[in-house]
Every structure is written in C-alpha cells, then in structure tokens.
C-alpha cells in the first residue's frame, strides 16, 4: 500500500509539468499585447515600446519560459502586469470567498442530492424516479447565469430579501455572510446536485441488486434501515469520487457565479485577468486551480485504499 501511495504521488509530477507547459505556451503565443492595454487610451507607440521592454516582453520566448519556471520553483508566481502586486498576494486576497462558496456549495449539494438520489433509486422505475431524473438533467442543461439573474430579480429586487451582490466574510459578519452566500450557493449547486444525484442513484441501485441486500430485505429488515445502513454505506466510494471530479465543474461554475453575484473571488480575478491579458495572473491561477484538482483527486484515490482495500491500481 505504501508503494501505491508513493507511486500515486509521483505520478502527479509529470501531469503538473505538462500543465505548466501548456499554460505557458498557450498564453505566450497569444497575439494580444499587454503593453498596449497598460499604456492606455492616449499612449503613443514610443511609450508602448518602453513598457514592453520594462516588462521583459521583448525577450525571446524560451528565455521568458526559463525565467518563469525558475521563479515558479521558488514559489514565486510573478507580479501582476497591471497592478504591480505579487500574484500570490492577489490570490491570497481572493481565496476566502471562493473557498467559502465552494464549501457551502458542496455541503448544500450533498445534503440535497444524496437523499434525492437514494429516493430515486429506491423508487426506481416509478414516476418519482423519472421526475427526479429529469430535474437532474435539467440541472445540467440550465445556463448558470440565467438562474442567477432570475434569483437576483426575484429575491433581491422584487422581494428584497437578500442582497443582490457582494460577499461578506463569516469571520467578521456571520449574518451578512449567510445572507450574501445563499443565492450564489443555490446557483452554483445546480449542476453539482444534478451530478451527485445521478451518481448516488446509480451506485445505490447497483448495491441494492447485490445478494446481501436481498438477504437483508428477505430477512425482513426495515427498508429505510437497509437503504441507509447497507446501500448508502457501500455507495460512498463512487459518491466521493464524483465530488473530486466535480471540483473542476465547481471551478468553472464559480467563474460564472462570481461574475453574476459580484463576489471578489478567484473566478472573477481570472476572468478580469484574461480580458486584460495579465499573463502572470492567468498563469498563476490556472496552475493553482489545476494543481488543486490534481492533489484533491490524488488524495481521494489514496483514501480509497483505506476505505475499500479491494481497489488496486
């Protein structure tokens, strides 16, 4: 088992290197020129050329790459072209809202989706099952921002129950935090709920068809007990997997949700950076997102070996 863990950890290295190369190549080959954007509306060609050389953008591309990797290894993500602030500082500033939104979304989704999925599996083949499944497909299909705007319109502007935008930290303003996080959480949860519901239903269905459950049922154990004690317990592994895989979905959704609700998180940071061609921020953030994803999935894989020793890779 130790050797598996070591192998699994080592296997993330080449993936991370590939991500770094892809990210660098992608952004440095763009025709967009940040110097021009920085120089602003009235800049002359001379000023632009000067800015470009200040930023090192006139150096050969392989020199830029080597410099960048060197800094990266020292934990230095570079300096934002526009704000002159270290990318790591910018990320640190924006980390909390995204982290909080992800946490509330995962909790809310699991609380809603797992019971729904179990219920659908239990009632498999009936109209209840079909309706739940159609709703879960709808969750995949509905554009996140349309739902966001509908919620803002109804609960923010018409009923005035909740703030229309912004984020409050739970550490300084718990009530404000709850009020401001409700609509973004619902919005972002939709696609996640859909995903987890489907997986839960499928996993529980599979377990329900296994012999020992049939035995338990035949022995006259109460359905609910069978469902939760046996079925759900054994379905836990695939559900955990999907939560790991879903991190990528969550990040994509967070980009949109943060834009709709004006939440100062990492998603907004990366969108702004892309529109302004602020390379160091884009590179830094895509790397951070990807590495987070790689590490979470590595941890989940390793966790399996503890939960379910049958699994081997």
């Amino acid at each position: 088992m130790v050797s598996f863990i070591v192998r699994r950890v080592l296997s993330t290295l080449p993936v991370m290197i590939i991500v770094a190369i892809v990210v660098f190549a992608m952004l440095r080959l763009t025709p967009g020129d940040p110097a021009v954007v920085i120089a602003g509306d009235q800049a002359t060609a001379e000023q632009i050329a000067r800015i470009r050389s200040n930023l090192g953008l006139d150096l050969p591309i392989h020199v830029q790459f080597v410099t960048w990797i060197g800094q990266l290894l020292q934990g230095d993500l570079g300096i934002s072209i526009f704000t002159n602030m270290p990318v790591s500082t910018l990320i640190a500033q924006r980390l909390e809202p995204t982290l909080m939104l992800s946490l509330t979304t995962i909790c809310f989704s699991v609380l809603v989706a797992v019971p729904l999925g179990v219920w659908a599996a239990w009632r498999s083949g009936t109209w209840t099952d079909r309706v739940i499944m159609v709703f879960s497909v709808l969750g995949f299909s509905f554009p996140v921002f349309v739902l966001g705007y509908l919620l803002i319109y109804e609960f923010g502007l018409t009923l005035k129950w909740l703030p229309t935008q912004g984020y409050k930290s739970p550490f300084s303003d718990p009530v404000g935090f709850v009020r401001s996080i409700i609509m973004p959480t619902i919005t972002l949860s939709m696609i996640y709920i859909a995903l987890v519901t489907r997986i839960t239903r499928a996993s529980v269905l599979e377990v329900l068809s296994e012999d020992y459950i049939r035995t338990a049922r035949a022995k006259g154990q109460i359905e609910r007990k069978v469902l939760f004690r046996h079925a759900l317990k054994n379905a836990a592994v695939p559900i955990a997997t999907i939560i790991g895989i879903g991190i990528a979905l969550l990040i994509g959704g967070a980009v949109v949700t943060e834009t709709v609700f004006n939440i100062p998180g990492l998603g907004r940071l990366v969108v702004d950076a892309i529109l302004r061609r602020d390379y160091p921020i884009i590179q830094g953030l895509i790397l951070v997102f990807s590495f987070t994803y790689i590490i979470i999935n590595m941890l989940i894989d390793i966790a399996y070996t503890f939960f379910d020793p049958r699994i081997r890779y």
Binding site: I152, G156, L157, K160, P163, T164, Q165, G166, T259, V260, F261, N262
Partner: peptide
C-alpha cells in the same frame, strides 16, 4: 470604491447596497 459590472451596479444602487 467597488468594482461591478453595469447590471450589478444598477441592482446594488436600487437596493441601497
């Protein structure tokens, strides 16, 4: 000074945020 897009700013102004 807060940064918001037009739609968000309008909503925030209407709700007094």
């Amino acid at each position: 000074w807060y940064t918001m897009d037009a739609n968000t700013a309008m909503n925030a102004l209407m709700s007094g945020e």
